[in-house]
Amino acid sequence: MTYSAKLIDHYENPRNVGALDKGDPTVGTGLVGAPACGDVMKLQIKVGRDGVIEDAKFKTFGCGSAIASSSLATEWIKGKSIDEAETIKNTDIAQQLSLPPVKIHCSVLAEDAIKAAIRDYREKNGQAAAPAAEAAAR
């Protein structure tokens, strides 16, 4: 199996690795897992007053594709409004990294992590979750 240069770059030089303060009300934390491979992914966003994501951090224990997917996800959502970030689809991530079919679930995990972080932020700030947030594939 050959991996794309973009995927290898994100795996070898992951962007935005780290953590934000979970207790901060402007921080939303998403924690998701893929039991089939035992992966666990934490993605956090720091949201400004204008609803724009100022910072994003992640920590992923999993395969290279899972790490690359979450790295790309944090890169993409920084500077976007939470409403925009919420529209990112796993297929966008999979396409950008040219994920092989057996690794598509890694991009699903990243999409779920973004949505979970946004949901956590909204719950903390008393906003109702957008209906689309519950549409995650089973």
Partner: peptide
């Protein structure tokens, strides 16, 4: 395959 979970207690411990 392809199943994702959001069980905070379990995932926090795993992390």
């Amino acid at each position: 395959e392809n199943r994702t979970i959001q069980d905070p207690a379990l995932l926090m411990e795993a992390m």
